[in-house]
Design a protein around this nucleic acid. Sequence first.
DNA 1: GTCACTTGTTACCGAACGGTCACACCCATG
DNA 2: CATGGGTGTGACCGTTCGGTAACAAGTGAC
Lengths: 219, 219
Amino acid sequence: MSIAVVNKNAKRGSTVKPDRESTSTPGSSSTKVAPRDRIVTTACELFRQHGIRGIGVDAIAEAASTNKMTLYRHFGSKDDLVCETLRVNSEKSGAMWADIETRFPDDAKAQLGAWVTALSDCLQREPSGCDIANAAVELKEADHPAHAVIENFKILQRGKLTDLCRRTGTQEPETLADTLLLLLEGARVSRQASGLEGPAQCFQRACRNTLTAFGVSTA
Amino acid sequence: MSIAVVNKNAKRGSTVKPDRESTSTPGSSSTKVAPRDRIVTTACELFRQHGIRGIGVDAIAEAASTNKMTLYRHFGSKDDLVCETLRVNSEKSGAMWADIETRFPDDAKAQLGAWVTALSDCLQREPSGCDIANAAVELKEADHPAHAVIENFKILQRGKLTDLCRRTGTQEPETLADTLLLLLEGARVSRQASGLEGPAQCFQRACRNTLTAFGVSTA
DNA sequence: GTCACTTGTTACCGAACGGTCACACCCATG
DNA sequence: CATGGGTGTGACCGTTCGGTAACAAGTGAC
């Protein structure tokens, strides 16, 4: 299957007590991040890079400068860790919404325009697509606990966007919101062969067109 | 990880020579499909159901009423089999294009409308999303041979759709095609929480709106 | 110092996986 | 009947994986 081997050669060569860059130095070197937080951050990154099924708990623990035992003390199973990373990603999205709202208070049209540009920037920055959507594709087991997190996020996101569209005064705010979401999901998936300019520009242009078609002038 | 176990209990219980439903009866029972074809068909289905990483070659062979050895005699590796299934899926898409063209010869607008309805029907029938796009999400290894197949398919699809849009006489046929593709990919991914009516209707409505916005009356 | 708590380390387990081997079997062709 | 190619069967190998056990080491509060 030619699985990308990320695991191999755990030990960093030297046999003497090596570079413990962040651990065991309480307040000195690098802000003393708790193991649990290091694990979550690292897991987010590695899941995005290699897929959930493509990376093992051992490799995650090692990349987080800790070990498997500590990982399993904080998370009962790999599934739990997956859920936690998805939850963190949801919170990141929530932060983006809050940022938009504070930057353009009481201006729904400007907020909607900012949403488009923010997501377009996000698309250009992270070529791996939406972590949550990717997780939904990868986890086919119907009873996987992550599906609740995914479902919850999607409902929340759609609610927020629909509400924002409604506040712009357009008719059919739900149709507009659903169209924008379809464009977003599509852009996140199809990072190949979306024209010369890439899915980010493609997404942005399609959104602008859709907004004008719905009578929303993007301020 | 709570991987869905599809493999277990290979043997059908009875120890006597059991129900060999299709094999060893040359021209009698069920049309005598060659093992290779059975494997490909079964693999397509199982990859869609469980994901490429979620199903093993053993389970595929057994579901195809054959065994692992025969599978490996026809396909050098699981990766080869994956590529073959993606190729088959590409051909199915090609058949759809041919069908549309014969049903509405020399009528680009009607063909485009038929494309929308055909894909919408397809979305409603198969809730698993696009197998090729799913494969792209699941196979993160950059050197996986399937990526060539995927890329090839996407380029082909985009070329056909762009050409069709151009023949409708609209300006910016590429932008229109890219928008429709974004909507399609999005609808295929987001089978959850796309409004009350599901992504299929959502996709269809968004496409109609987009087409009218681009001045293409869907006959 | 002592105690409780969190981490680190190592080894291990059972299962599933991709892939291979050797051998028996069937069946069509000659 | 003999031969040869495609197929079925079961065992096997090496690896990786998720998860656990047992024990040592560090750390902060009292």
